[in-house]
């Protein structure tokens, strides 16, 4: 059973217009923001498939930038994310591809982002109803679910800790 809570049905509270093309994408951006512990100075974004086809109408790029700027999915500023990215010095490029070579789903995005010395490449998929998943992180395939009830900073922090621990252990 994919839906587990009353709040999976009544919710999330989010900026429109689409739970999969907008809300779920904010979470993917937020994960990267949390991973870098701040907004990136540069982000190279590739939208695939349905995201590439319909991103303008759904504000998908605003949603992703909003997340990269640390906004949550109910933040009205998501609507102005393009202007705010400019003000905050977040430089980005957008590219469009037909299908994602790493993950078979119409709603996929790959972001390479840099903040100071930190660089991250993350693949995200928006699964519907605001539920997202990071499927690729720095070249590794992963399954990090981003639920609307999750605190994404905790999810990212947990994953960072696991990775640091693994690196210390020489795995």
């Amino acid at each position: 059973m994919e839906f587990r809570s009353c709040f999976d049905i009544i919710g999330p509270v989010m900026v429109g217009p689409s739970s999969s093309h907008t809300a779920g994408v904010v979470s993917i951006g937020t994960f990267i923001y949390e991973w870098l512990r701040g907004s990136p100075e540069r982000a190279d974004i590739i939208f695939y498939h349905s995201f590439a086809e319909t991103y303008q109408g759904h504000g998908t790029e605003k949603a992703l930038l909003g997340g990269l700027l640390g906004m949550d999915m109910a933040d009205l500023q998501v609507k102005q994310a393009i202007e705010i990215a400019e003000q905050e010095g977040v430089h980005y490029t957008l590219q469009f591809e037909e299908s994602c070579p790493y993950y078979d789903h119409p709603n996929t995005v790959v972001v390479r982002a840099r903040r100071k010395k930190h660089v991250v490449t993350a693949g995200g998929v928006s699964l519907g109803g605001g539920l997202s998943k990071i499927f690729m992180l720095n070249g590794e395939m992963v399954d990090i679910y981003l639920r609307t009830s999750d605190d994404i900073s905790k999810v990212a922090a947990q994953y960072c800790r696991d990775e640091e621990r693994a690196m210390e252990g020489g795995v």
């Binding site: 009544i10 509270v13 900026v15």
Partner: peptide, 9 residues
């Protein structure tokens, strides 16, 4: 792009 509650979407 106003704030809404998805019910269910």
């Amino acid at each position: 792009m106003g704030v809404i509650v998805a019910t269910p979407t």
